Structures are given as structure tokens and as C-alpha cells.
Amino acid sequence: MKKVWVLGLGLSLALAGCSDSGSDKEKKDEASKAEENTDTAGELMDYYLNLTTTVNGVDIDLNGYEEAMAGEEPPAGDELAALKESAQASAKASAEAVEGMEIPDGLGDQKDAVESFQSTLAESYNMKADELAKDGEADFTAADEKLNEAENQIKKVLDEAGLVSSSLISDLNG
């Protein structure tokens, strides 16, 4: 009877030891995933901040044109022509800057979504440049819709990464 009891106790201890090692592995896996998510979020945030800073460095004339046209007395004549020309160059430079942004390799599953966002944002700037090349007043309605689409895309990516989403439009025009 004592032998059965000792054998039962030994088996119980062995099983308890096995189940603990399994939970240790699960804890390590969870810690690894948490660290990976933190790294991804950090890379994503660095990418976003770098993108907005870069674009804000080249879209100054485009923002100036849009602000002037929204004013009480929009410019006309030679002043308007000069503003449109510099705004068009600014829009092209902004699209090129966006297209030239390097997407970090560490984004994992979100890399495709960031590539799509980046393409949409560049398209928005190209649409503005095309509108500014036309005679007459530029109509940015379609380009602004494309910019809203880009904002929704990046918000979704930021949310999925556990980051507080920002307003892309405010970050680029603010």
C-alpha cells in the first residue's frame, strides 16, 4: 500500500512538473509576442512621424495655395499663376517624398496595409498636381477624397498596432 501511495505521489509530482514547463513556454511565447508588438508599434510610429515631417517640409507652397484660395479675397492674375506654379511643384515633390519613404521591414502583417496607405497618399498629391496644371481654378474634391481614404487607412493600421490614431490631414496641413 505504501508503494502505491509513493508511486502515486511521484506521478503527481512528475505531472505537475510537466504542466509547469508548458506554462513557462506559453509565458515566454506571450512575452515574445508582446515584445514583437512593441517593436512593430515603435517602427510604425517612427515611420508615421518621419513621413509627416518629410511631407511637411515639401508641401508648404501647396498648403499656402489652398489657404490663399480659401481666403476672403483669393489671389488673381499673375499672383494666382505664380501661386499655382509653386503649389504644383510642391504637390509633385510631396508625392515623390511619399513614394520615396522606406517602409520598415519589421511591420510584419501590417506592411501591405502601410504600402497601400502610402500609395493612396501619393496618389492624392499627384491628383492635386494634375489639377494645378489645368487652366482655371483647381478642383481638389477628388484629391481630398483620396486623402481622406489615406487617413482612414493609416488610422486602421495605427489602431491595429495599439497606437492612438492621429488625424493625418491635421498632421500634414497643421
Score class of each variant (00 low, 15 high):
61 D>C: 09
130 D>I: 03
158 L>W: 11
125 Y>F: 12
37 N>Y: 04
48 Y>L: 07
37 N>A: 12
20 D>V: 11
141 T>G: 06
103 I>N: 02
65 Y>T: 03
18 C>R: 07
110 Q>K: 15
23 S>W: 15
85 E>A: 10
139 D>N: 09
124 S>F: 01
57 G>H: 12
80 L>A: 11
159 D>I: 14
147 L>F: 10
132 L>Q: 04
62 L>V: 12
49 L>C: 05
112 D>S: 14
82 A>N: 11
117 F>S: 02
86 S>T: 14
65 Y>G: 01
97 A>I: 01
109 D>H: 06
129 A>N: 11
42 G>A: 06
17 G>V: 10
130 D>F: 04
127 M>C: 01
69 M>A: 13
83 L>G: 04
128 K>F: 11
50 N>A: 09
157 V>T: 14
82 A>Y: 01
88 Q>D: 14
158 L>F: 12
43 E>M: 10
89 A>W: 05
138 A>W: 03
137 E>W: 05
130 D>P: 01
153 Q>P: 09
64 G>P: 09
27 K>Q: 09
42 G>K: 04
146 K>M: 03
122 A>Y: 09
40 T>A: 11
24 D>N: 11
106 G>N: 08
152 N>F: 07
131 E>N: 07
76 A>E: 10
50 N>S: 13
94 S>W: 02
35 E>C: 06
51 L>K: 14
72 E>Y: 06
28 K>D: 06
67 E>K: 15
76 A>R: 11
128 K>H: 04
27 K>L: 10
57 G>K: 13
67 E>H: 12
125 Y>H: 14
78 D>W: 00
91 A>M: 06
91 A>I: 00
127 M>I: 01
67 E>G: 09
68 A>L: 00
124 S>M: 02
61 D>R: 08
132 L>W: 08
77 G>R: 00
86 S>M: 07
109 D>I: 13
101 M>S: 12
128 K>T: 06
73 E>V: 05
132 L>A: 05
80 L>W: 00
127 M>A: 15
100 G>Y: 01
65 Y>A: 07
49 L>K: 08
85 E>P: 00
51 L>R: 12
23 S>I: 10
32 S>N: 11
111 K>Y: 01
102 E>P: 02
39 D>Y: 03
156 K>S: 13
18 C>M: 12
131 E>C: 09
63 N>F: 08
124 S>A: 15
109 D>Q: 10
22 G>R: 14
64 G>R: 15
67 E>N: 15
108 G>D: 08
133 A>M: 03
17 G>E: 03
86 S>K: 00
34 A>P: 04
27 K>Y: 07
112 D>I: 09
135 D>N: 08
45 M>F: 15
111 K>V: 13
81 A>T: 15
95 A>K: 06
106 G>R: 03
52 T>P: 05
28 K>I: 06
58 V>G: 08
102 E>Q: 10
102 E>F: 02
50 N>E: 11
152 N>E: 09
18 C>D: 11
139 D>P: 01
25 K>D: 13
143 A>Y: 03
70 A>E: 05
124 S>K: 00
106 G>D: 09
29 D>I: 07
129 A>E: 06
132 L>S: 05
50 N>D: 07
135 D>P: 02
81 A>M: 14
149 E>N: 02
80 L>P: 08
74 P>L: 00
71 G>K: 07
45 M>D: 12
88 Q>H: 15
133 A>S: 10
114 V>T: 07
134 K>M: 03
61 D>A: 13
116 S>Y: 06
117 F>T: 05
144 D>K: 06
17 G>H: 01
